[in-house]
Design a protein around this nucleic acid. Structure first.
Length: 821
RNA sequence: GCCGCGGUGGCGGAAUGGUAGACGCGCACGACUCAAAAUCGUGUCUCGCAAGGGGUGAGAGUUCAAGUCUCUCCCGCGGCACCA
């Protein structure tokens, strides 16, 4: 074996070997091995692999390799989430075809990914911008459309007046356009939506069965934002007490405060304003207020810190259904702090028991009527619960009971969610075309299935957004529509928007199970073999978007009978973030970017991968700064492993004849014990994604191994197998050098023997009143009596005890004996 | 404001309620060397010559025993944010 650890040579060699021998192409079934589906979020082909990709892919590969050695038939697929804005921006900036830009990036990144030495199954690769893929995105869209889960409606969207385009919520930063810093405005547009709100309850309740970190579950819970409450109707009357037929429905979670209502507030977009137009005496001012509200961005409008504004509707009043006589008629306001898209768009205001209403009432000098005791409403609102007062027959009962009784008598029990429908239309070129055409009346019709994939037209020169999707300028698309639906002038119009890329990524994990199927998005039997995903690793930023969208999509497919289960991901792990050496987020402008290619060249892929695994616990979403010093520690470790092999090889030639027998003799039992302890620790830590402590256990073992004169080959072989998932190249090289005929990665994962972990002697701490006063080395599993006897003999302990007799003795086997005096 | 996560050496981080600081980095000293690097060895929370004392954001509590459990507070990070 070579004296020097030449990582470049070794890594290239084995990567080639694994590839040529199709090592990681997974069969759908392999003997009686159980299938295991390990998934990582597929990357966007930005053009360059950064350290974050390494952290996202190389570290879970440790788990995957260990699982494979552990006897599972593991599928670990990879692909590209290839549609999206950056390609289009590059196209506009550099006048290149987004298609060309994307596919060149993919080719380059694939090469970079190869250098990682991951055990990816490339044969199942999916690229979301391939027509073979997006054909099925479109097909699934149409299935959802048929079921009424995809629909079109007018909606208010974020619009950047200088970029001339719709922005996704995440592209709006503090009310400004992410790219040009221009103030974002609101615009009314016809848009496609998925009816995710229909699934709110199931998305919420099905979380119980998911083995996901609690933090993700609570984040999704908050996002869905369920609240149980009551809907109540208020009649509307003129100031002359003439009751109109229109009523105002309000939603409240505090029906117990109904007697404290002193006014109603409508959202500016509430339809009743239009209906009662002729009755409103100050209509001009009201319309002016509404217009002003619309000019505001949603961010501005929903800023809770902003002072509340509103305007009273003169000439009309609302009637509190529970009050007769004074206080029965209450004024109605329009105010932008009430949202049109939540609840009923109208609220009953109870200033005594709601902070916002209190603030508003103070400003406009409105009545504050206390109905729940317990607070001091002359100072501030009291939002807690309590006993009802000023509420007639409900006086004296508590809030909870009152809510039920009042709801039963005057209203209706309802549940509301904060979750909004998923807006999927994008006025963009580089996305999956929405397979819809419109007839002369503007009614949408699906593209017939035989015409899928509904191709993204290629005759577009200008990708710059002009307010309408670039697809609108395609002659080819128009012709295609005419060909299918008839050429009688321009009666039929194609949909020109494309889909949000989150649609592409909401079902890709299904496609991996059957990525080449031309007849189905995935065969149901194949799906059954792999789905649901056994373990999904990814970034915390996807908690409320990708993960929620995917869950919704999968449930919809389940209801359509297309998949076999209603949840796609059994277990989810969120990883942390790698920061620059300065502890800041890596960014070109800060100049703190670590280039993985460069690092790999310098120290090798095994070292980079292992360092990332060592940097901190992978099962927590911490932030870990890159440390050049830290990585040399790992490199040193691998070099020491390399070196110790030379020692074994020397011995091996010396003891060639009794090669396999020499092991037990030359290894002392202490080392064997440590080996089994190490197997246990590494096995368990890998399962829990605590790779950092697994590595430290292997370091401890190596430290010990280096101090043993004769290193047994089988002991070392076992150690090497533990290391194999962490450092696949170097271990493969050493393994063959040790004259093994087959790959180390096809070896069986070592098993530990609990009985061998126990050492002969254990050091027990002797405490007096909980303070350590001495130590005692004694036979493992020694009884309390023995330990006590030996401990009390110690002069040190005698000194501390003096004439005191222990009142109490606490004994924890193999750990501690504590004398309480 | 609400929700979630966290706060341990010079640094990244270890610790089923049971000897805090494993492992790695850094640093110091030593060996090897003409010398340096690399490598190897020893040491490295803190005060103290020592015996011993103190120490896991602050304060209280439970316990024979608290980094770990409970309460109050402070700080940092992430998410949501007028959701009635």
């Amino acid at each position: 074996m070579e004296k020097e650890y030449n990582h470049r040579e070794i890594e290239t060699k084995w990567q080639k070997f694994w590839k040529e021998n199709k090592f990681y192409e997974t069969k759908d079934q392999d003997g009686n091995k159980p299938n295991f589906y390990a998934l990582v979020e597929f990357p966007y082909p930005s053009g360059n692999l950064h350290i974050g990709h390494w952290y996202a892919f190389a570290v879970p590969d440790i788990f995957v390799r260990a699982k494979r050695m552990g006897g599972y038939n593991v599928m670990f697929p990879i692909g590209f989430d290839a549609f999206g804005l950056p390609a289009e921006n590059a196209a506009i900036k550099n006048k290149v075809d987004p298609r060309k830009w994307t596919y060149e990036n993919i080719a380059y990144m694939e090469k970079q990914l190869q250098s990682m030495g991951n055990s990816f199954d490339w044969s199942r690769k999916v690229i979301t911008s391939d027509p073979e893929y997006y054909k099925w995105t479109q097909w699934l869209f149409l299935k959802l459309y048929e079921k009424g889960l995809a629909y079109k409606k007018k909606a208010i969207v974020n619009w950047c007046p200088s970029c001339n385009t719709v922005l996704a919520n995440e592209q709006v930063v503090a009310g400004k356009c992410e790219r040009c810093d221009r103030e974002v405005i609101q615009k009314d547009l016809e848009q496609w939506f998925f009816k995710i709100t229909d699934y709110a309850e199931r998305l919420l309740s099905d979380m119980e069965n998911l083995n996901w970190p609690e933090e993700i579950k609570t984040a999704q819970k908050n996002w869905i934002g369920k609240s149980d409450g009551t809907e109540l109707e208020f009649e509307v009357a003129s100031s002359q007490h003439l009751v109109f037929s229109e009523k105002i429905k309000v939603f409240t979670t505090r029906a117990d405060t109904l007697f404290g209502v002193t006014y109603l507030v409508l959202a500016p977009e509430h339809p009743i304003i239009e209906k009662l137009k002729s009755k409103i005496e100050n209509l001009n001012e009201v319309e002016k207020y509404i217009k002003e509200t619309k000019a505001k961005t949603e961010i501005e409008r929903t800023d809770a810190k902003k002072k509340k504004t509103g305007i009273k509707l003169e000439g009309i009043v609302a009637i509190n259904p529970v009050i007769s006589g004074t206080g029965r008629e209450v004024p109605i306001f329009v105010a932008d702090y009430v949202l049109g898209n939540y609840g009923t768009g109208a609220v009953m205001a109870v200033p005594a028991h709601d902070e916002r209403d209190f603030e508003f009432a103070k400003k406009y000098n409105l009545e504050i009527r206390e109905v729940i005791s317990g607070g001091n409403i002359s100072v501030e609102s009291y939002t807690g619960e309590g006993v009802l007062i000023n509420s007639r027959e409900f006086d004296g009962i508590n809030s909870e009971e009152a809510r039920e009784k009042i709801t039963e008598k005057f209203g209706e029990k309802v549940t509301k969610y904060k979750l909004r429908d998923w807006l999927l239309s994008r006025q963009r070129y580089w996305g999956c075309p929405i397979p819809i055409v419109y007839d002369s009346k503007g009614k949408p019709h699906p593209i017939p299935e035989e015409n899928l994939p509904w191709l993204l037209p290629e005759d577009i020169k200008d990708f710059a957004p002009k307010g309408e999707s670039p697809l609108g300028s395609s002659k080819e698309l128009k012709k295609r529509v005419e060909k299918i639906f008839g050429s009688s002038s321009d009666r039929w119009k194609p949909e020109v928007d494309t889909m949000d890329t989150f649609v592409d990524s909401s079902w890709y994990f299904n496609r991996y199970t059957d990525s080449k199927n031309e007849k189905e998005f995935a065969n149901k039997e194949k799906l059954k073999l792999w789905m649901p995903v056994s373990r999904y690793s990814g970034g915390a930023e996807h908690t409320n978007m990708h993960l929620l969208y995917s869950r919704f999509f999968h449930k919809a497919l389940f209801d359509l009978g297309l998949v076999n289960e209603s949840e796609p991901f059994i277990k989810r792990m969120n990883r942390g973030l790698i920061l620059g050496p300065d502890g800041q987020k890596m960014s070109k402008s800060k100049g703190n970017v670590i280039d993985p290619d460069e690092m790999v060249k310098k120290v090798g892929s095994d070292t980079v991968k292992m360092y990332l695994a060592f940097i901190g616990p992978y099962n927590e979403t911490g932030q870990y700064p890159w440390d050049f010093g830290g990585i040399v520690g790992i490199r040193r470790f691998l070099e020491r492993v390399w070196k110790i092999v030379q020692k074994i090889e020397e011995q091996d030639t010396k003891y060639e004849i009794r090669e396999e027998k020499s092991d037990i003799k030359t290894s002392n039992s202490k080392l064997i014990g440590l080996l089994h302890k190490t197997i246990k620790k590494v096995t368990e830590d890998i399962e829990n994604y605590k790779f950092n402590t697994a590595i430290s256990a292997m370091m401890i073992f190596l430290n010990e191994l280096e101090h043993i004169p004769n290193v047994s080959k089988t002991v070392f072989d076992t150690f090497l197998k533990l290391l194999a998932p962490f450092a696949p190249h170097i271990t493969e090289e050493i393994w063959t050098n040790l004259r093994h005929k087959t790959s180390i990665h096809l070896e069986k994962w070592p098993e530990y023997d609990e009985s061998k972990i126990k050492e002969e002697n254990t050091v027990i701490a002797i405490q007096i009143n909980g303070k350590v006063r001495g130590q005692l080395e004694i036979k493992t599993e020694a009884s309390e009596e023995t330990v006590k006897e030996r401990a009390l003999k110690s002069t040190e302990i005698q000194k501390w005890l003096g004439n005191n007799k222990p009142k109490k003795v606490i004994f924890v086997p193999n750990r501690i004996i504590n004398f309480v005096i």
